[in-house]
Simulated scan of single mutants.
Amino acid sequence: MARSAKGGTGNRVTITRALSKLGYCSRTQAERLLAEGRISVAGKPVTDFDTWVDIRSDRIEVDGRAVAAEEKVYVMLNKPRGLVTTRDDPEGRETVFSRLEGTGFGFLSPVGRLDKASEGLLLFTNDTVFAQRLLDPATHVPKVYHVQVGGHLDDRQARQLETGVLVEGETWRAASVRVIRQGEKNTWLKVTLEEGRNRQIRRMLEAIGVECLRLVRVAIGEIELGDLPKGDVRRLTTDEIAILRKATGF
Rank of each mutant, 00 (worst) to 15 (best):
T128L: 14
E162I: 11
R133N: 09
V177L: 02
P137L: 09
E194G: 10
L189P: 00
G112S: 02
R65C: 06
V179E: 07
R214S: 14
K21V: 10
P45H: 09
G23T: 09
D54F: 07
H146S: 01
D227Q: 13
T238R: 15
K230A: 08
W188E: 06
R203V: 10
A35H: 14
K79T: 00
I39T: 03
H146T: 02
G10K: 15
T28N: 14
Y74K: 09
M1K: 14
G37Y: 13
R156F: 11
E170D: 13
A158E: 11
A5I: 11
G226I: 12
I220A: 00
E194R: 14
T14E: 08
A5F: 12
A117E: 15
K190M: 13
R27Y: 01
S57G: 03
V73Y: 00
A242N: 11
R27S: 02
G164L: 08
L114M: 10
E31I: 02
E224H: 15
A2I: 11
A35C: 08
C25R: 09
L34M: 10
M204E: 07
R87K: 13
V149G: 07
N78Y: 10
Y24D: 04
D232S: 14
R17V: 08
V111P: 01
G169Y: 00
D50Y: 12
V13D: 12
K44G: 07
A35Q: 15
A131W: 00
K79Y: 03
R159L: 10
R217W: 04
D239E: 15
P45T: 12
L100A: 03
F107L: 01
P229C: 08
L123W: 06
V84F: 10
L121G: 02
G120P: 05
I243Q: 11
L228R: 04
T163M: 03
F97C: 07
T51K: 07
G221L: 07
R38A: 03
D58C: 05
R99C: 12
R12P: 04
C212W: 10
V165E: 01
R214K: 14
G8K: 05
V111Y: 00
L114N: 13
S40D: 05
K21F: 13
A2C: 04
P229N: 04
V46W: 01
G231D: 10
R3W: 12
A42H: 11
T237Y: 06
V53H: 00
S118L: 01
L236E: 02
K143N: 11
E240S: 02
L193W: 08
R17A: 14
D136P: 07
V111F: 02
R133Y: 12
N126L: 04
L153G: 00
K190L: 13
K44M: 10
E224C: 08
V191A: 03
N126D: 03
G151Y: 03
M1P: 14
I180N: 06
K6D: 11
W188V: 06
L205H: 07
Q182Y: 06
G196R: 06
V73R: 08
A18Q: 09
T187I: 00
I60Q: 04
V144S: 03
R17C: 09
G169E: 00
L166Y: 05
F107V: 03
E222M: 08
T9L: 11
G249N: 07
V216M: 13
G231V: 09
I180R: 15
I220Q: 02
R99M: 12
Q200N: 02
I241T: 08
D239K: 15
L122D: 09
T237N: 06
V216T: 11
